[in-house]
Amino acid sequence: MEQITLALAKGRPAKKTITLLEKTGEHFPELTEESRKLVFHNSDQSIKLIFVKAVDVPTYVEKGAADIGIVGKDNILESLADVYELLDLKIGKCKFSVAGKANHYPADNQKLTIATKYPNVAKKHFKQKGQPIEIVKLNGSVELAPLIGLADYIVDIVETGDTLKENGLSILEDIETISTRLIVNKASFATKAAEVNQFIKQLKSALE
């Protein structure tokens, strides 16, 4: 059997995935909470685990640097990566929404300014609606943008809606739901079919 490389996003989804993997009998002896290493192997060396930034997981997988990735749908959508998306791990559930100030009414047919960390997602959504927009790409505290007049609306991930509420924003519409997905490189799916399918099967059984 050939070794497969698994890219995980640091943080909560990684922890849950590793718990799932341990349930299926795959252990990563060197992996501990405090470890700052980025590469780990399981006991029989059949899986190489690498930790990368969530937004980079689709890139690693698309380019074949990792065979399999586990990452939020938000990052997959934003990256426009050409990969297979084979499994929903049903963790990290949230949604993409458009939000704004409650009493903000831009004139009809006006170009809207949208602040977001996810320009591709925002563009695609408003293009489908036929609404011209201008994107302001931000890297954090997106909720601030409508409050200080930087943007009409924001497109962002909403989990509980508390952050929006506390900042006086409300959801205008939902774009789509998000959860953690398993993605696979298209070449690996062809050339390492047995290993990849075995891994997916294991993970699936752990999910049930």
Binding site: G64, A187, S188
Partner: peptide
């Protein structure tokens, strides 16, 4: 056609 480790056909 796919080769090992090249993500695109």
């Amino acid at each position: 056609g796919f080769l090992d480790n090249v993500g695109k056909p």
